[in-house]
């Protein structure tokens, strides 16, 4: 996004709205720090600019800048998934897709969240390590699409410096690898340059229990009690 310097009256109303704090007050006008802006669109959508000075320049939609908007603005759609958002439908439709089957866990690492943002290249710190573990990244995920080669976890050079509000790394692991992969992630996280929020997806056991919680606790990972539950209403129901 940009602010038309001819129109801006420097009222500063837009400043607090930017989640990245990228709007800066100049001498007489406000400006958007082009490098820090993630193109989330909050300023243009939500700020009632009295002179309508905020605009989306054509460069926003030019590669590689264009990835900022698709990762940061939930109203934009990823062309390769057809789904809005930063990841897949994950657990939302698992009763119908069987994306995560019994005996497997889905893992999603959302870089830049909450509210900090990330350079796409920063996720390599973890994706390279995961690739060494022969993790197969979710092919329908937009971040996988930006990898030079999903087998290495390396992000394409031209998008590496692009800053986004968040990007999700998604993959599935066999149940028996839980401790090994999670420990690897925790170890690597201590060296990571950015922040990430982390989730694990699992089927309920037939008796309704979630043994994964105790297994994670055993390796020092505490789960949040606030969980997202697929209640099993989707049809056709696809069993494993």
């Amino acid at each position: 996004m940009k602010i038309n310097q001819e129109l801006c009256v420097g009222c500063g109303q837009c400043l607090p709205y930017c989640p990245m704090g990228a709007i800066e007050r100049g001498k007489d006008t406000s400006r958007i720090n082009w490098d820090e802006c993630v193109e989330c669109g909050i300023c243009i959508r939500q700020v009632k600019c009295p002179v309508k000075a905020i605009y989306e320049p054509k460069e926003t939609l030019e590669w590689p800048r264009s990835v900022r908007k698709v990762f940061s603005d939930p109203t934009s759609k990823h062309e390769n998934t057809g789904v809005r958002g930063r990841g897949t439908e994950e657990v939302k439709t698992n009763d119908v897709t069987a994306r995560f089957k019994r005996g497997f866990f889905g893992i999603a690492l959302e870089f830049g969240r909450p509210g900090v943002g990330t350079r796409l290249g920063d996720v390599e710190m973890i994706t390279k390590v995961l690739a060494e573990e022969e993790i197969v990244f979710e092919s329908a995920n937009p971040l996988t699409f930006l990898m030079e080669d999903p087998r290495t976890g390396i992000i394409k050079a031209d998008v590496r410096n692009e800053k986004v509000l968040s990007g999700i790394v998604e993959f599935v692991i066999p149940q028996e690898n839980l401790e090994r992969v999670c420990t690897k992630i925790v170890d690597t996280a201590s060296k990571a340059k950015c922040i990430f929020s982390w989730t694990i997806i699992t089927r309920f056991e037939p008796d309704g229990t979630l043994p994964v919680v105790a297994r994670l606790e055993n390796i020092g990972i505490k789960t949040s009690k606030n969980m997202k539950v697929n209640v099993g209403l989707g049809r056709p129901l696809r069993e494993d």
Partner: peptide, 16 residues
């Protein structure tokens, strides 16, 4: 209803 599957938050990680 029999819950089908769940997505569990493992919190925030990493540093600057």
């Amino acid at each position: 209803l029999t819950p089908h599957s769940v997505n569990i938050s493992l919190g925030f990680h990493g540093q600057d």
